[in-house]
Every structure is written in structure tokens, then in C-alpha cells.
Design a protein around this nucleic acid. Structure first.
Length: 284
DNA sequence: AGACGTACCTGACCGC
DNA sequence: TGCGGTCAGGTACGTC
């Protein structure tokens, strides 16, 4: 098995984490971890004490996700929580020498190696009891899972009610909707034809319904794209080329808007010191 | 409470 | 070729 990235080229948001979860589960679910090597423990937070000793020898039983968090369940009712931050990747390969920024390396039976690689070290790894997942400080305050069965315009309206900040800033708040980052927040607002400058409270009723549907559609499409390249990857055993698909507005300042209207141009603006890309004519 | 600014971190990119 | 400056953004935290 040649080393290759099971990671992302841009920032990992919900769809990327879901694709990684799926890819890892296929290879690692039910496998015993034989060895853990911590090369750098000073991530966004320090690795838990004796992390390697506690994970070594355990079977990884289930691979789950909440928002942008990976939850890797162990046989002894513990959970390894992984957040990829800005630049984190999970690479899956054989046991060649670790490369730069491979901070934690897991060797599984069968000669499979999982590496947590994160140049900026904005990511983190934690370990705790499985029955504490919903009470974990990083998980507890998260907003609704946008692909969950209860996420719709009604619930979005109630979350946004009374909020005066811009809808764009609010979509980045993980307590409002869990799992969106800058890219899919922009893409969702474009698909919903909602202006990023609107106040949260003004997104209600039909408009909130449109936005909720758009968020789900954008995330589903991205996961589907990730899944299809995952199949290519499994067949080809090469490097993953996914998440290269074109975004409709993100990073496209000055481009023609996808609506096709000749006078519609994508613009960039800065909100909460983050870039927003949108079509001022389509999005109201 | 919520809105905002800043820090964390490093690779990529640009201009000189 | 190299060097310094700037930008990118998820999240935590401090401040008003």
C-alpha cells in the first residue's frame, strides 16, 4: 500500500471530515492498533497524558463524526477525538518513514499506518470516556448537525431569532450550525440567494427554509464528490485528487456569476476579518 | 449575552 | 536567489 493522502487540500469542513471518516472506517474499523508514536504532542492543546500507552493495543471499533470532529471509538469504551484545524490531514499508508509534520502515528495490524499530519498544529487530539461524548466541552455547545433529520428552516429561524450579527458571521459560529466553515458558508448563501450582509434575525420563514435546504444541498454534493473520488482512490491506490471541484463563489472575486447574467460579478468583502465571496445581484 | 478583535501557526505567494 | 511582508482561516479567549 503506497502512502497517500486521505486528507484535504483546502481547509477541512464537514464534508471533508465526513469523507475522511468514511475512508478511515473502510480500512481501519475492527483493526487493532499495535503501536502509537507521538512525535509532537504540542498541538492546539497538548495531547492527553499517556495517550500512546492508552491507545496502544486497542481495537478501533467505530468511526463517527460530529460537526468537524472525528470520534474514533475504541474497544474499551474510550474515544479518540480528532479535530483537523486548518491544515490537518489523516494519511493512510504503509510503514515508511514519517514525513515532516506527522505528529502522531498509529500502526495497525496488517501493516497499515495512520498518520495525523498538521503543519500549523491548529488541530487537536483528545481521549476520554465514550459515555462523556455529549458532555465533552468541545462537543456540548455545538449547534444542530445540518444533515441531521431535524435541521430545517423552522429550527434555523429560531436559532437566528434576535441575532443582529451578519448571517455570514453566524453561519461560521459552530453554536449556530455545526460544521460549516468559510467555504461552505459562502457557497450555501449563494445557493440560497441570501446576502451575507443580512442580519441573522432577518433570515426567517421562507428565506430560512431556502438557506437550510441550500446548506444541506451544498454539503451533500460535496460529500458525494468526496465519496466518488474515494472510490477512484481505492481503485487506483494513488493520491487523492478530490476536493478540487470548483466552487461557485469561493475564491472567485471578479469572475462571472454562475447565473450567467453578463452583469453579475462575484465580489469579495471582509466580514469579521474573514473573506466573503458573493454575487451582490443574486443574493439579497 | 453577544459582538468584536486578537492570538495561535506555517506554507504559499508576491514584490523588490 | 533570497528575503521580508502579507494572507489564509477554526477556534479560544479577552474585552467592551
Amino acid at each position: 500500500m503506497s502512502a497517500r493522502f486521505l486528507g484535504v487540500l483546502n481547509v477541512p469542513e464537514l464534508p471533508e471530515v465526513e469523507t475522511i471518516r468514511n475512508g478511515l472506517a473502510k480500512v481501519l474499523e475492527g483493526r487493532r492498533c499495535k503501536e502509537v508514536l507521538v512525535r509532537r504532542g504540542d498541538l492546539r492543546r497538548p495531547l492527553p497524558n499517556k495517550f500512546a500507552e492508552k491507545v496502544k493495543g486497542r481495537v478501533f471499533t467505530r468511526f463517527c463524526r460530529r460537526a468537524k470532529y472525528l470520534l474514533l471509538h475504541l474497544e474499551d469504551n474510550k474515544v479518540v477525538l480528532v479535530h483537523l484545524g486548518m491544515s490537518g490531514r489523516m494519511t493512510l499508508g504503509g510503514q515508511s518513514n514519517p514525513i515532516q509534520h506527522d505528529h502522531v502515528v498509529f500502526d495497525f495490524e496488517g501493516g497499515v499506518r495512520l498518520s495525523f499530519n498538521d503543519p500549523r498544529r491548529f488541530g487537536l487530539i483528545d481521549l476520554f470516556e465514550a459515555n462523556q461524548v455529549s458532555r465533552h466541552p468541545l462537543i456540548e455547545a455545538l449547534g444542530p448537525e445540518p444533515l441531521g433529520p431535524n435541521f430545517d428552516g423552522r429550527i434555523l429561524t429560531s436559532i437566528l431569532s434576535g441575532r443582529r450579527a451578519s448571517i455570514k458571521a453566524l453561519l461560521l459560529d459552530q453554536k449556530v450550525v455545526a460544521g460549516l466553515g468559510n467555504i461552505y458558508a459562502c457557497e450555501s448563501l449563494f445557493l440560497a440567494r441570501v446576502s451575507p450582509r443580512r442580519s441573522g434575525a432577518s433570515v426567517a420563514g421562507v428565506r430560512a427554509e431556502r438557506l437550510a435546504l441550500a446548506i444541506r444541498e451544498v454539503l451533500r454534493a460535496a460529500i458525494a464528490a468526496g465519496g466518488s473520488s474515494l472510490r477512484d482512490y481505492v481503485q487506483a491506490h494513488g493520491e487523492l485528487g478530490y476536493f478540487q471541484h470548483k466552487f461557485k463563489v469561493y475564491g472567485r472575486n471578479g469572475d462571472a456569476c454562475a447565473s450567467g447574467a453578463s452583469d453579475h460579478v462575484i465580489r469579495r468583502l471582509v466580514q469579521s476579518s474573514r473573506s466573503t465571496f458573493y454575487c451582490p445581484r443574486c443574493q439579497r
